[in-house]
Design a binder for these strands. Sequence first.
DNA 1: CGAGCGATTGATCGCCATCAAAGTGGGTGG
DNA 2: CCACCCACTTTGATGGCGATCAATCGCTCG
Lengths: 242, 242
Amino acid sequence: MAPVVSTDTEPNLEPEHPCSECGVRLLSICGALAGDELRDLRQSGTTIRHKAGATIFFEGEPVDAVFTTTAGTLRLSKLLPDGRRQIAGFIFPGDFLGITMEDEHAFTVEAITDAELCRFPRYHFDTLAEQHPQLERRLYALAAHELAAARQQVVLLGRKTAAERVISFLLMLGRRCAQEDRMAQEIAVPMSRNDIADYLGLRIETVSREFSALKSAGLIQQTNKHTVWLLQPGRLAKLAEG
Amino acid sequence: MAPVVSTDTEPNLEPEHPCSECGVRLLSICGALAGDELRDLRQSGTTIRHKAGATIFFEGEPVDAVFTTTAGTLRLSKLLPDGRRQIAGFIFPGDFLGITMEDEHAFTVEAITDAELCRFPRYHFDTLAEQHPQLERRLYALAAHELAAARQQVVLLGRKTAAERVISFLLMLGRRCAQEDRMAQEIAVPMSRNDIADYLGLRIETVSREFSALKSAGLIQQTNKHTVWLLQPGRLAKLAEG
DNA sequence: CGAGCGATTGATCGCCATCAAAGTGGGTGG
DNA sequence: CCACCCACTTTGATGGCGATCAATCGCTCG
């Protein structure tokens, strides 16, 4: 969710080290480490792969590991007893998964697309964090970022109209792929209408209608269901805030 | 917002030290420090008082300080351009105010009741945090806690009905004053109906109606507008989740 | 080509917002 | 001490946005 903090310089790393090829290392938690510390972390970590739709962990399960996402998109969701579902956030490559002090997961995490993660046992990760202030600092920065994002979502859900929610959502996705604010921007929308609806506190039909309205207003354009062009980012940004 | 982490032992502290009398020290960020470090922090800090309704800082202002709340209740809010307001959270005595990596405040903070805070210049606080891993760790724990709370609010706003929102809100307040889960529990509700409405993503009339409904259902009881008894916590808890 | 699932579009409903008016209580000044 | 005021709250009547119900479309895969 958070457009993650990046480091300025590439720490030394022997070329054959598997993490050296990791495309998201510098974006994620691992960027805070180098050399021996990274080797420590790596040795405790395993790469896990999940098919689209698979569950990484369920709400209520014990928190015994943390993760770094290296590929794919995940969703963080919660079910009410009667089946209503709310998605609290999406997790993209480079995002860290494991900001909590609780013993149980408060949310379920599932793969939206095929996904790949690095899994680190929690006890080992906690120890490492205690030994490396810069890692702890990075964790704090990530937590602060996630908190800001969650509060933005609170504003969206509490006070925005359906149209504003959908536009805000597209702009948020756009910010992730942002290469200079281009006039027209192509953005990937890996999640289904259902996921979007459950993220925005709407029903699938409403999301669909809002997409259609944006298309006929000439504000967006779609080639297929998972690719959207933002045609007028400036106007969209205004509309997103009411 | 977060029922804050507490330490087990009271660190040594010379009796005449002003912080030694601080009722919330052990609950807040300062509990991570003792002796010289606490003196450092204290020397950089000033006590500030605000009347009910006063603004501590506005959204968009530079973040040049962090705060610990020692008395009173604050609200964290954001205005949309057309005047719609969303309250992202309430801040109670002991709560830390300043979890961010941004240069500008994302939210406005105002005093709901007369309030008292300890104000610490940011540069000094950041330096102190860098020098004291246990302080950084405490900050991380607080951030993780706030994140969990914010995501709970996301679920509330995205998927709960008006009745469920009001009940969840009362239970959240109840958890703050929780002395054993008593059969009937008295809770303080320092904020106005308007604040409650803007927190729950509802209008004031709806909040009022839901309070009335809970009263006639025998689930709560009110002596005055700012005191509520939870008569059947168990049933309320069930109703809060749908 | 047909089955099946997700997405779209249309018709109607219901919850909560909005509009309106009356009630309540705390504070101030006479 | 009381009368008045004003802001907040409560209650009632109506309306609208988004949910729900329903039908069709369109794509993917067998």
